[in-house]
């Protein structure tokens, strides 16, 4: 399958997460308006960062004077999973020039990576993930714009409950992993158990992420050694 066909497949299969992303985008637009971002600033942020969790994290600290270091650290911490998504794609973006890979990695996105493991081997993964990303970007920008313009309707509405929507969307992706894995999902379960333990011990968020992923990696290596 050519890169263009694979990109089109990514766009076609992105319908489910297009809608989920749309809901998030509307919420982002409403919140951005509430904290005082101008329309063009919110849209520029959505266009250049293209990360729901990172953008929401930044809005928590959006005030004059801007605390750059705090925003940088929080955006980095919630984006650390991108490191892992990128690493997971290492073997799947071959056959393209380095320049293209560098440029198209801009559109790397969680659901695109997760669902790419379910498509046939003949699909070009870089094209697929990029097509998926284009669709997510369209959804994200359109919904941000709608949220910005609808913000006045929600001025007296408590959106606090919806902040848990992020973990809900992550759970849908996790379930796709669980249902399509060909190997025992032990690394993920160990990561979850380790995260719980570290949380109970009062570890900071970055340490929870680092150590629990590390625990999962150790199990994955052990599994691979036993299989090999």
């Amino acid at each position: 399958m050519t890169t263009a066909q694979s990109a089109w497949l990514g766009i076609r299969l992105s319908g489910d997460y297009f809608i989920s992303t749309f809901i998030f985008g509307v919420m982002f637009g409403i919140t951005a308006s509430a904290v005082g971002l101008q329309q063009w600033q919110a849209l520029l942020m959505s266009l250049t960062s293209f990360t729901a969790s990172g953008q929401f994290a930044a809005l928590e600290f959006w005030q004059a004077p801007i605390p750059y270091a705090t925003i940088a650290l929080s955006v980095f911490l919630v984006s650390t999973r991108n490191l892992l998504l990128g690493m997971a794609m290492t073997h799947h973006f071959d056959g393209h020039s380095l320049r293209r890979r560098i440029a198209w990695l801009f559109l790397l996105n969680d659901p695109g990576v997760v669902t790419s493991f379910r498509v046939d081997d003949e699909v070009d993964r870089l094209g697929y993930v990029t097509g998926y990303g284009v669709s997510m970007m369209v959804s994200w920008l359109t919904s941000t714009l709608i949220g910005l313009n609808a913000a006045h309707l929600f001025a007296n509405f408590d959106l606090g409950q919806v902040s848990f929507a992020g973990p809900l969307v992550l759970a849908t992706m996790m379930m796709l992993f669980f249902k399509n894995t060909k190997t025992p999902p032990l690394p993920w379960l160990v990561s979850g158990a380790a995260a719980l333990l570290l949380f109970e011990l009062g570890a900071p968020d970055y340490l929870i992420l680092l150590l629990s992923v590390g625990a999962g990696v150790v199990i994955a290596i052990y599994q691979e050694r036993r299989r090999g």
Partner: peptide, 24 residues
Amino acid sequence: QGIKPVLEALPGCAFMAILAPAVR
């Protein structure tokens, strides 16, 4: 050798590391 399945397990590990404390 054998790194591919380990790398592919990473996103799931990250999701679980975020989800478990959130649910807790």
